[in-house]
């Protein structure tokens, strides 16, 4: 057995708690996150619910829980989709080489140069705001990241002699990619998935903040921040709660990614 890096434990706990909260919010929240109770309006933490109530008296803790579902759901779907497409492009580029590789990586470079917020605004204008717009905008932004990482990792594996041995066994590029390349780069891809999901949460919050994300009344951390701006001085907990939730989620996923990277680092593996 190997000792787990501290970042992995901490990151795993935070991420686990968030996913737990998101799942739990589907069946139970302390109060209905959409139910208004005007008497509780702008009450602070402890006075009404664990984290207080917002400008129309909804329970903040319940909205944060339900918002976790939205944020994580959109970020994870987008990252998984973008990751799958990007990895496919990356390993194909590494396997094919030549013109295909250069073309794929050039398109990749162009995609990479579009900031996700800008492309989301563009998409929002075309498709209208909503979960699908967020997922598409964030997912497209993920593709080049994964294409790059997986191509680099795959090229390293392609230079190993066991790939030559597989060619000697009459295997073509597709089969070699499936049997030898993907299993050997999976660890790096998983690390990247964790880190990119963190970025995805940040992007989702940004899009909601700008009104390009999910439509109200679906709870969302980004829109909570946007709504709370007006009450910054009178009810700072309305900014702090979603702000901390976003920071914690990104921190947790980054720690998880770093921890996984440490765990799978070949230099560490050799030392043990």
């Amino acid at each position: 057995m190997k000792r787990f890096p501290i970042s992995l434990i901490l990151g795993g706990l935070i991420t686990g708690a968030l996913i737990g909260a998101a799942l739990l919010s589907r069946v139970w929240t302390p109060a209905d996150p959409t139910a208004m109770n005007i008497l509780n309006r702008l009450k602070g933490p402890g006075e009404a619910g664990l984290l207080g109530a917002d400008q129309i008296g909804r329970d903040v803790f319940s909205i944060i829980m339900a918002g976790a579902w939205t944020s994580l759901g959109i970020a994870m779907t987008a990252t998984l989709l973008g990751g799958a497409i990007g990895t496919l492009i990356g390993v194909s580029a590494a396997a094919k080489g030549g013109v295909f590789e250069r073309l794929a990586m050039a398109i990749n470079g162009v995609l990479f140069s579009f900031p996700p917020i800008l492309s989301a605004i563009l998409l929002g204008a075309l498709m209208g705001p909503g979960a699908l717009t967020s997922i598409t905008a964030i997912g497209v932004f993920m593709i080049p990241v994964f294409a790059r990482v997986s191509r680099g990792a795959a090229l390293q594996i392609w230079s190993r002699d066991f790939v030559q041995a597989a060619r000697m066994a009459g295997k073509g590029p597709a089969l070699i990619t499936l049997q030898h390349i993907l299993p050997n780069i999976s660890a790096q891809i998983i690390v990247q998935l964790a880190i990119q999901t963190g970025l995805g949460i940040l992007s989702e919050a940004g899009l909601s903040f700008l009104g390009m994300g999910v439509a109200p009344p679906t709870p969302s951390w980004g829109r909570m921040l946007a709504d709370a701006q007006t009450f910054l001085s009178s009810a700072p907990h309305l900014v702090l709660a979603p702000g901390l939730a976003i920071a914690l989620a990104v921190l947790g996923l980054n720690l998880l990614g770093d921890g996984l990277r440490d765990l799978t680092d070949p230099r560490r593996r050799q030392a043990s």
Partner: peptide, 16 residues
Amino acid sequence: FQMVFQDPYSSLDPRQ
């Protein structure tokens, strides 16, 4: 015809 390579650390897939 089959081949044996120089570096036995590179010629065997560590995942298999």
